[in-house]
Amino acid sequence: MSLRGWMLFAAMSIIWGIPYLLIKIAVEGVSVPVLVLARTAVGALVLIPLALNRAAWAPVLAHWKPVAAFAFFEIIAAWLLLSDAERHLSSSLTGLLIAAAPIVAALLERLTGGEHRLTPTRMAGLAVGLGGVALLAGPELAGGSAWPVTEVLLVALCYAIAPLIAARFLADVPTLPMTAACLGLAALIYAGPAAATWPAAVPSARVLVALAMLAVICTALAFIVFFALIREVGAARALVFTYVNPAVALAAGVIVLDEALTVGKVAGLALILAGSVLATRRTDGPAATPDPAASR
C-alpha cells in the first residue's frame, strides 16, 4: 500500500473511532435530536455541493425506497439510539459493543438467503464474537443498564441491516450523492424534534467543540476520506480499518474521559474482533472485511 493509502487508512481509523467519545461529551449539553441534527445537517451541507452532477442523482431518485430504508437504519434510527444510550453508558463500552455489527451482519446475511453458507469456521466466529458481547454486556445488564445496552445492540443490528440493503438494492447507486441524500433526509426528519428540544442556554465550549467535530470531521470529512481511501486501495482493503476502530474508541474513552480500563473490556474486545474475523470469512482463505457502518 502507498504512503497516501497508509495515511488515509490511519485517518479513517481515528475519524470513525472517536465518535463515541464526542457523542458522550455532546449529550452533556444538548438533546439527542439536536445532536443528530447537527451531524446530519452539516454533513449534508458539505457533501451536497460535492455531488452536483445531475446525472449522479438520477439513480438515487430512481431507487428512493431502498435509499430511504438505508438512511433509516444507517443514520435516522442508529444515531438516535446510539446517542441516547451514551447518556448512560461509557463511550468505550459503547464502541466495543458496536464492534459486534459485522458478526450480526454475517448471521443476517445467511438468514436472509445470502449465498455464503455458515461453515464451521464462521459458526465458531459467531459463537466467539457473541461471547465477547455477553462478557461486555453482562455486568451492565446486572447493574441496571438493560435499556441502554439494548439500544447499543439495536444500533449494531441497524448497522448490520444497512449494508445488506446497500449490497442488494443500491449497488449501482453512486455513494457520494446517496450519502448526501441520506444525511439530508435525516436532517429534515430531526429538524422538528431538535427545535422542540433546543437548549435554553448556549452549551459549554466543550460541548460545542464536540458537536462541531462530530459534524465536520466524523461525518462530512469522514465520508470524503473514506471514498478517497477506496479509490486508493480498493473497497476490500479499505474496510480493514474497521477492525481498528473499537481499539481507538476504547483508548479515547480511557485517555480523555478517564473511563475504566478493565480486563473484561480488553477480553471482550479481543473476543469480538476474533469472532468478526472468523464470522466474516468468505472461504477458508483470507478473511473478508466488515462494513464500515459498524464504526459510526
Rank of each mutant, 00 (worst) to 15 (best):
G43I: 04
E140Q: 09
A134S: 06
G5F: 12
A180D: 04
I165S: 04
L229Q: 08
A249C: 03
G285V: 03
G131F: 06
N53E: 15
A142W: 07
A279M: 02
C182R: 01
G29Y: 08
A38G: 13
A194L: 12
A167P: 08
I18E: 02
I103N: 02
G192S: 11
R281G: 03
K24Y: 12
K265G: 05
V173C: 14
T175S: 03
I14Y: 00
R87A: 09
L214G: 00
A220M: 05
L81K: 01
P246D: 08
A105H: 07
F241L: 07
V133T: 01
M213E: 13
L126P: 04
V209R: 02
I230T: 10
V128P: 00
T112Y: 01
P163G: 07
C218S: 05
I272R: 00
A78D: 12
I75Q: 09
L61Y: 11
A200H: 11
S90P: 01
G275I: 02
P193I: 15
C182T: 13
I165G: 02
A200S: 07
F241S: 07
A100G: 08
S295I: 04
A293W: 07
A156Y: 02
W16P: 03
W79R: 07
P49W: 14
P66C: 12
E74G: 10
S31L: 07
D172L: 14
A287T: 07
A251F: 09
H88C: 08
P163H: 09
I75T: 10
L211N: 12
I75R: 03
A235M: 15
I75N: 13
A267S: 09
I23F: 02
G234F: 14
L153C: 03
A288T: 01
E109P: 00
L221F: 13
S145D: 15
T289V: 12
G43A: 04
N53S: 14
A77M: 13
L93P: 01
L211T: 00
A137S: 06
G113Q: 05
P33T: 14
L111M: 11
A142K: 06
A215G: 05
L221Q: 05
R281Q: 09
L126T: 08
T175Y: 05
R39L: 00
T179A: 07
L261S: 06
P177Q: 02
T219R: 03
L185D: 04
V240S: 02
A252T: 03
C182G: 15
A267I: 15
L82E: 09
S204V: 12
L141E: 07
S91T: 12
I48A: 13
L141G: 04
L269I: 12
C158W: 05
A127T: 12
V42H: 08
M1A: 09
L257Q: 01
L93W: 00
L221K: 07
V34A: 09
A41P: 05
T283V: 13
P290G: 09
A55Y: 11
T175E: 04
V36M: 01
E140V: 12
